[in-house]
Simulated scan of single mutants.
Amino acid sequence: NLGNACLTSFFVTGTWDHSKLLQSLKAYQNAEKDERMKSNPDLYFNCATVNKYLENYDRALAGFEAAALKDPSLNASEEVEKMVNLLNKLEILLRGHSKSKRLASLASTIGAVNLNSSYKRATLDALSDGLNKAVAVLGKVLLFVKHENITPLYFLVCDSDQSCFVLSVYGIRNDTIKEGDQLTLLEPHFRNIDFSWKEKVFSPRFYSFLGGEEELKCYKFKSIRVDFLEQVLVNGKALPPHQAIRTSIYAQHKP
């Protein structure tokens, strides 16, 4: 299956090539056009996995939910829960840090970096959706965000304008970037995340779900992803090759 092959290649080659994910997604979408495949839960699961790593959170959630409905024995419902937990955590952390006094202090310490003349320094507000060629964003790491998956690594970062964003990093050891580090992100891939997802209504007073009722929750934040070691300078220095990692994650199901 071409989709599975491209998804596996994304991880095991160590290049974390965005194009592999896009190829995989296209292959799965083509497979979905086959009437015989529309009832296959593995196809929905694998397509959702690709969308998860493309950080198309809304499509990933919908895909995992569809897979869970078609085959409850898959761990698709757990994937939904993990993703919602992550999104809720990011939202809470971003809200808390955007109002903190520490933010102004950290942002003021962002210093100049010797950049190749082909790069133009920019703040978050100047970025375009998608890949920003010949652009460098400088920021300070507020904290490392722990979550339930191996990859990517998530960080909360602020730029010199005190704009906070989520940084997702692929293919780099988890001890490479630390709180307080200054990062230079070269040719960042920028996303303005803005979508709604249904969640159970929870009553803290009664510690129970209220009859399984659901409400829409809106997730809205700015995100940058970097896929290659060469895209990150830590405290003005390029990362050595030994900081790169390969993660053996494969398509879990084979339609």
Rank of each mutant, 00 (worst) to 15 (best):
L69Q: 14
Y57A: 00
V113L: 01
L87Q: 05
S108W: 03
A48C: 04
D161V: 06
V135D: 04
S128I: 04
N85T: 14
I92K: 13
L106T: 06
L94N: 12
V84H: 07
L54E: 04
G171F: 05
F144S: 10
L106K: 15
N75S: 03
A48V: 00
N51Y: 04
L115T: 00
I110E: 00
F144C: 09
A62M: 05
V113N: 02
C47A: 12
K146N: 07
L138S: 05
K70H: 11
I110K: 01
C158F: 09
N149W: 01
Y57M: 00
V84G: 06
T109S: 15
K70I: 12
Q162R: 15
A62K: 15
R95C: 08
T109V: 12
L131I: 12
V84E: 09
K52A: 12
L86T: 11
L156S: 10
V157H: 03
N149F: 00
E79S: 09
T109N: 13
R59M: 01
G130W: 08
K89F: 06
V141E: 01
R95T: 11
Y154D: 02
L142K: 04
G171C: 07
A126H: 09
L106F: 14
Y119F: 12
V135R: 13
K89T: 14
K82Y: 09
S100T: 08
S160V: 04
